[in-house]
């Protein structure tokens, strides 16, 4: 490859989340990383610039105007505990719409949107492994899930409407690590409530493997929707056991109540990890990612669970 004068520029939204910081740390040697996050930058590598901005503010567009951005990675906001329904919808759905509009307006060649495999929804009649063509049936009941589905749908329709932008939508399975997402919080509980009589197969993925998939998506020419899975699936009870936590099978209403208190401090944010995910399968077929992104998970189940294990 010809020597480059300067590394390509990458814009990373939601950079101050734990996952955002991990991504910044692993990509800042290869890319000039610019971050946007209303929380501002904390614990960032020195060569990373962070704009303390909300994406919905007009000033956010200046970042697109003033930099020659080669790629955007968009991390929709996590669900903070105290947000109201409208706040969240606004931040996640409207934030994503804004980012994609700017990408199109300022001729950004590549944008990667991090969605989630949870959008397919856990259902008793799901095939064991859902492909990218499966309908997004999550979130008919809860606004957080509805927002995730809406964000994903907006991103996929942007992919179809704008062939000039290489759009990638990643749908990773339950992300587990030193993170504040619902799956990590749930599996970190030392006595993990599960639903009596149900023990669905479940897929988890480490932040390392997810970052590998993200990095592969940045390659020129890669576009489309990709399921991303980690090591082979295991029953939920077995994941709990391998995290060296205690499995606590309880009747469903009790589990609902317990999770409401233990995750998200009694607020609505719990439902991001709706109890249906503890009852029915919602697993994906990741062969497209394996073939096209040449992605294979590197960490096994034990390594993936290590950050949250006892």
């Amino acid at each position: 490859m010809a020597p480059r004068k300067s590394p390509p520029t990458l814009l990373l939204t939601g950079i101050s989340s734990r996952l955002g910081r991990m991504i910044a740390r692993s990509l800042h040697t290869e890319y000039r990383v610019i971050g946007v996050d209303p929380r501002g930058g904390v614990h960032m590598p020195r060569d990373v610039t962070v704009h303390a901005l909300d994406l919905r503010r007009r000033k956010a567009e200046d970042i697109f105007r003033r930099n020659r951005i080669d790629a955007v990675i968009h991390l929709p906001p996590e669900a903070p505990a105290a947000q109201t329904m409208d706040d969240h919808r606004n931040a996640s759905v409207v934030g994503t719409q804004k980012v994609l509009d700017y990408c199109q307006k300022h001729d950004i060649p590549k944008v990667v949107i991090l969605s989630t495999a949870a959008v397919y929804g856990p259902r008793p009649d799901n095939p064991q492994f859902l492909t990218e063509e499966a309908p997004l049936l999550a979130g008919t009941r809860h606004h957080l899930m509805r927002d995730l589905v809406e964000t994903d749908m907006y991103a996929t329709s942007f992919f179809w409407r704008h062939p000039e932008v290489d759009t990638v939508v990643l749908r990773p399975v339950h992300l587990v690590g030193r993170l504040n997402n619902a799956a990590s919080q749930y599996l970190r509980l030392p006595r993990t409530p599960t639903i009596l009589g149900f023990d669905p197969m479940m897929q988890i993925i480490s932040s390392e493997d997810l970052i590998t998939a993200l990095t592969r998506s940045l390659k020129p020419g890669i576009r489309g929707v990709f399921n991303v899975a980690g090591p082979p699936p295991l029953p939920l009870s077995e994941l709990v056991r391998r995290a060296r936590h205690t499995n606590l099978p309880l009747p469903e209403p009790l589990v609902r109540a317990m999770l409401a208190v233990k995750i998200g401090g009694g607020t609505a944010a719990v439902s991001a990890m709706q109890v249906e995910y503890l009852k029915f399968v919602c697993m994906v077929d990741d062969s497209r990612a394996r073939d096209t992104l040449r992605y294979t998970p590197r960490l096994d189940v034990a390594q993936t669970l290590a950050p949250i294990s006892r």
Binding site: P124, I195, G197, F198
Partner: peptide, 22 residues
Amino acid sequence: PTLPFVSQFFARAGQVVGTPAN
């Protein structure tokens, strides 16, 4: 799969939900 315990037992015994994809 909506039946408690039964669903668990069938899955462990190698029975899968009857969809063409499966």
